[in-house]
């Protein structure tokens, strides 16, 4: 396993890019939504300013907060950033993709969620418990759909290694309906996992409807900043995952200057497109009732499972 220094350096650059660009994506989505609602909206760089402000503010902890509550922001940020660093962004051949494959990546995100839910339960308020309960429940229902759609992709690629999967997707010659099913399922899961409309509203503080926000009500200062940042990274991570797995065109296959630069431009353009699409979706849809979420997620699962059946019926048998 001789991996050149260049690749590792590029990998680190990629990880840093994911971490640093994440607030930008949030800014773009906010701006788009504002424009769609005929508002001028905050500047695109506003999320960076928010984070800076939060980092400077003093941190207040509840009296009975335990060490779990204090470590959560760090664990959350660390695991999310680590998960983000194994997804190919502009280069297919990624040495860190060997550390954790797609299943391990999902498990890292699950670890982050586990810790966050514990933090929600830590203080002992009704909101925290409610958020933790709902978040864990819905993500549990999303898990099979996510895994099944990953399965569909890895059945074709004969691998769960993200680099190999992206490479396979890049060299697909035929129209494969199963991929479309997997994409649809993964999009639905991504919306649910990131707590966007129609599952959760990231900008609400209305107690009966919130899921994610309810868990982090007690956080302040730099703790809050890290949590916000982590959820922005997660959004970018899912966007990049979808882009690299399903529309990888333009991604660099060799670590040379020119392909990498064009790949960067392509990636950026595709992320912006996804952001616009998400903004349009969020403006057009309303949040569904809490108990319709399971139906939504089971639809995602059915889609992914159909993808797998279609793969076996139409693509393997052929």
């Amino acid at each position: 396993m001789s991996i050149s220094i260049t690749l590792w350096v590029l990998n680190l650059v990629q990880a840093a890019l994911m971490v640093l660009a994440a607030p930008l994506l949030a800014g773009i989505i906010q701006k788009c939504k504002a424009r769609l609602q005929n508002r001028r909206g905050a500047p695109i760089l506003q999320p960076y300013r928010n984070l800076l402000k939060l980092f400077r503010k003093e941190t207040l902890l509840a009296e009975n907060a335990s060490w779990i509550f204090r470590t959560t922001p760090y664990v959350l940020f660390t695991t999310t950033a680590l998960a983000a660093s194994v997804v190919p962004v502009f280069l297919v051949d990624l040495p860190s993709a060997l550390i954790a494959d797609v299943i391990a990546m999902a498990a890292l995100l699950a670890l982050a969620r586990f810790w966050l839910a514990l933090a929600g339960m830590d203080i002992g308020t009704a909101f925290g418990g409610m958020g933790a309960s709902r978040e864990m429940t819905f993500s549990a229902l999303a898990e099979p759909a996510m895994l099944m759609s990953m399965f569909v992709m890895s059945l074709g690629a004969h691998s769960t290694n993200l680099s190999t999967m992206v490479e396979h997707a890049l060299h697909l010659e035929h129209l494969l309906p199963s991929v479309a099913f997997a994409l649809a399922a993964l999009l639905m899961v991504a919306i649910a996992e990131n707590g966007r409309i129609p599952i959760d509203n990231p900008s609400t503080h209305l107690e009966l409807t919130m899921i994610h926000e309810a868990m982090i009500l007690e956080y302040s200062g730099r703790h809050l900043a890290l949590i916000e940042w982590a959820s922005q990274i997660k959004l970018l991570l899912f966007a990049t995952l979808i882009i690299s797995l399903f529309v990888p065109w333009g991604i660099a296959e060799s670590a040379e200057v020119w392909p990498v630069l064009t790949a960067l431009v392509f990636w950026f353009g595709k992320v912006v497109l996804l952001a616009v699409a998400l903004a349009v979706l969020e403006t057009g849809l309303v949040k569904v009732r809490l108990f319709q979420v399971p139906e939504y997620l089971s639809t995602a699962f059915v889609l992914a499972f159909l993808g797998m059946l279609v793969h076996y019926i139409l693509e393997v048998g052929a």
Binding site: N64, S66, I68, A110, R113, F114, A117, L118, G120, M121, D122, I123, G124, G129, A132, S133, M136, T137, S139, A140, L141, A142, E143, P144, M146, L147, M148, F151, F301, F305
Partner: peptide, 26 residues
């Protein structure tokens, strides 16, 4: 395998509940 994934994710729910209710809060 997807049932295994569901079981694993539900196990996480279950043990967040166990730890959260028994050891955390008031």
């Amino acid at each position: 395998a997807s049932m295994l994934a569901l079981a694993g994710a539900l196990a996480a729910v279950c043990f967040v509940k166990l730890f959260g209710i028994v050891f955390q809060g008031q």
